[in-house]
Simulated scan of single mutants.
Amino acid sequence: MDNVRIFDGHNDAVQFMLDYRPDGRDFLARSEAGHLDLPRALEGGLAGGLFAMYAAPEQEPVDDLTINHEGYEVRYAEALHSDHARRQIDGQLSAIEKLIGRSGDKIRLATSVGEIEAARHAGVFAVVLHMEGADAIGPDLGYLDSLYNAGLRSLGIVWSRPNIFGYGVPFAYPRSPDTGPGLTDLGKNLVRRCNELGIMVDVSHLNERGFWDVAALSTAPLVATHACAHAICPSTRNLNDRQLDAIRDTGGVVGLNLAVNDIRADANLDEDTPLDAVIRQIDYLIARVGPEGVALGSDFDGAVMPREIKDASGLPRLLDAMRQSGFDELTLRKFAYNNWLRVFSLTWPDRS
């Protein structure tokens, strides 16, 4: 297993970087806080990943969680003003640039499959820019072009709140992902422009009608960077069988989300979630989407992880559990690394 390299389809480490916030963590130094930094990434076999930029509200909501005997519901988050969101995204872009600059070529920004592979062969960690929620982008889409020029290669249209492009799913269980209207006309324009530029469109956090709008419009494979199977855990954040089939039929990828509340059938926020529960999700997704369509989308630093994995350094334990469950070496390598690069190659134009 030592030779299996891993590419992760989603993490929220940017939110906690010292280069972004004075009380943050130095990504270059090992920490016991959170899930991801460079030493733990390398210990866990990570070759790189999609790093999510995300705009938070000015004030985090309080008392927005309701729990009853059936499950839970989080009050739907309010839309953000684009200027407020853009200031944060600009700050995060600057922080990533500073981090790469002071890493001494231990970290590189990658904008193509070739650059990811070159970094891997050089033993350098590859950062691919993703944005979770298009709140910072205005209706003229000009900022999207600026982000592309800065290195953005993956975009989630929404987080779990509305914006001018569409509607995210409110966090709830048990509940269907069909929670409201789909993409707006501006959202449809956004998908078309992403296709033109070669930015991967991420359907994570998008409600079901929005998903089908993307499916009808996009010329690229359908991708969910971090999600699980609704058939096992019926939370709004998970994908139902029809959605999984559509991802399969377009040659897309589902990044397995390690968030325990989306893995477990009971959706409990419990670190003592056994690896057997994670394997059950992987089994189901591969059976539905195929071995070429399932990868890792950890949600490190954005969710509660199973205790047996704990953080990025624990990823070899997940691969060991997959092997013990009967997955062959080829399937392991597809899940760990190859499937992401395959879908990137189908989405990002070769401009060399």
Rank of each mutant, 00 (worst) to 15 (best):
M131F: 05
M322P: 02
H205W: 15
T111W: 00
M53Y: 12
W159T: 09
F16I: 12
T219K: 09
T184M: 10
G180I: 00
S112E: 05
M53N: 09
Y20M: 01
H84Y: 15
R30I: 11
D105R: 15
N257F: 04
D19K: 06
I100C: 01
N339F: 06
F327T: 00
L332T: 15
E115V: 04
T236F: 01
D301G: 02
V169Y: 02
T179A: 12
Y72E: 03
H230L: 12
P22H: 03
A47V: 04
D23I: 02
Y148C: 05
A150Y: 05
N195C: 12
L190P: 03
K334A: 04
E70W: 13
L38I: 12
Y76C: 11
R108Q: 08
S146H: 13
R87T: 09
G182L: 01
L28T: 06
V253G: 05
N338H: 09
P181N: 10
P39K: 14
A267Y: 08
N261H: 14
T184D: 02
L50M: 07
A321G: 09
R5H: 14
S345G: 06
V289F: 00
V158R: 09
V278I: 13
F335Y: 10
N257E: 01
Q59P: 02
I279E: 11
L239P: 04
D299M: 08
D135V: 05
S103I: 07
D178Q: 07
L46I: 11
A287F: 05
W348V: 13
I137G: 01
S154Q: 13
E208P: 02
S298H: 09
I107Y: 05
P181I: 05
E32N: 15
D202V: 10
D140Y: 04
H10S: 07
A172F: 10
W159S: 07
P234S: 13
A265N: 10
P22M: 03
Y54M: 04
S218L: 06
W340Q: 06
R351M: 03
L152V: 07
Y54C: 02
S345F: 02
Y143I: 14
E70K: 14
L285K: 01
V294I: 07
T179F: 08
S204K: 11
A136C: 07
D140F: 00
R87K: 13
L319N: 13
D213S: 07
S31G: 12
A150T: 08
H84M: 11
R323V: 14
N240I: 13
R248D: 13
I164L: 11
G114Q: 07
L206T: 14
D249I: 11
L155D: 08
I157D: 03
F327K: 02
Q59C: 02
R264E: 10
A33Y: 15
T111Y: 00
A312S: 10
D105F: 10
R193G: 10
F165T: 01
N189M: 14
R323E: 15
A56V: 06
T250N: 10
P349L: 01
H230Q: 13
L36G: 00
A29T: 03
V260S: 13
Q243M: 15
L206H: 14
A172L: 06
V191M: 05
E208S: 14
V223A: 00
A224F: 06
V201H: 12
L244F: 01
D12M: 06
H230G: 11
A246Q: 12
R317G: 06
G138C: 13
L285D: 06
